[in-house]
């Protein structure tokens, strides 16, 4: 029974990691940028939920829409202001800029909201499901269901629509895509919008679970999602999904495991980052990643 509940916990945590990892992987796929500000978008989304629900006393539905919309806009604005001017700059400049944006958002939030956490109510409150002797967390079920719907939507978008085809074309060969009449700037903006929209959904789900917003909440979440994206194979959409769930499971099971009387939960972050090191050493392309094409 405990195993089953832990499995569900793993799926819940994995869902969040997967949603965030998708944003990492899509942005990397298209402009080869590790967008380290991506996790902080989730933090901004959490504060938006808090402002809407606790300060403005508006309903949870408004909070969900405001939060997702704000995250999407923020992603697009960050790209336009911070990354677009560096389109032809070395990738390292872009990476450093991303770290700068991340600090800017964290410190901006601290300046506005203060360093202490802000508590909020659960966004959805549904009673837990009890089947026989097993109690299933409704929050976990909602999180998992929303994530699966978002992933199906994303796969349809990428494979069935012309914008999706444009995204794949730009990520394979930006120059050739332009010569086929595809606007690279519009496609990159669109990619950031979709990645940030998924982060917004992740933010709502995360706030619903932990019910608290702090200025630095996005950085650890972002790093774990980054590990998930690398494990799955950075640049690969199915890879980010698999990697997200894998990291979620591993973290949950390490937290729950015991050796004798000693709980291993303090080791969970260390184990996740050990995965990053192992993947980078053993198979840097990850589970679903492409072989790097040799340029002759």
């Amino acid at each position: 029974m405990i195993f089953f509940q832990q499995l569900l916990n793993g799926l819940q945590l994995g869902s969040i990691y997967a949603l965030v990892a998708l944003g990492y992987t899509m942005v990397y796929g298209i402009i080869l940028l590790l967008n380290f500000a991506h996790g902080d978008i989730i933090m901004v989304g959490a504060y938006v939920s808090w402002v809407v629900m606790s300060r403005l006393q508006l309903g949870p539905i408004t909070a969900v829409f405001a939060s997702v919309l704000m995250c999407t806009l923020l992603g697009v604005v960050i790209e336009k202001v911070a990354y677009a001017p560096l389109r032809s700059a070395p990738r390292l400049s872009l990476l450093i800029t991303a770290i700068g944006v991340s600090y800017f958002l964290e410190n901006g939030a601290q300046l506005i909201f203060g360093a202490d956490g802000k508590n909020m109510n659960a966004i959805f409150s549904i009673p837990n499901l009890t089947i026989g002797s097993v109690t299933l967390s409704s929050t976990a079920l909602v999180t998992l269901a929303v994530t699966i719907v978002a992933m199906i939507g994303l796969l349809m978008l990428v494979h069935k629509t012309k914008m999706g085809k444009a995204m794949r074309a730009v990520s394979e060969d930006m120059g050739a895509a332009q010569l086929m009449g595809i606007s690279v700037n519009a496609t990159i903006s669109f990619t950031f919008a979709i990645g940030s929209l998924l982060a917004g959904i992740g933010s709502v789900l995360y706030s619903n679970i932990y019910q608290m917003a702090t200025p630095t909440m996005g950085s650890m979440l972002g790093l774990k999602a980054f590990v998930a994206a690398v494990l799955g194979g950075i640049g690969s959409i199915p890879g980010a999904m698999i990697g997200g769930f894998a990291v979620g499971f591993i973290e949950t099971f390490v937290s729950a495991a015991k050796i004798g009387q000693q709980s291993l939960s303090v080791w969970r972050d260390a184990v996740v980052f050990a995965i990053l090191i192992i993947v980078l050493v053993v198979k840097p392309t990850g589970i679903m990643g492409h072989k790097v094409r040799e340029k002759v």
Partner: peptide
């Protein structure tokens, strides 16, 4: 070519500009 994409999708990418329809209608 867009090597990882299908032959059909490569041609459809070429038709990007002439394919009408919004994202909403596609989704």
């Amino acid at each position: 070519l867009f090597q990882d994409m299908s032959v059909m999708d490569n041609v459809l990418v070429g038709m990007h500009q002439s394919i009408k329809g919004s994202l909403a209608s596609a989704m």
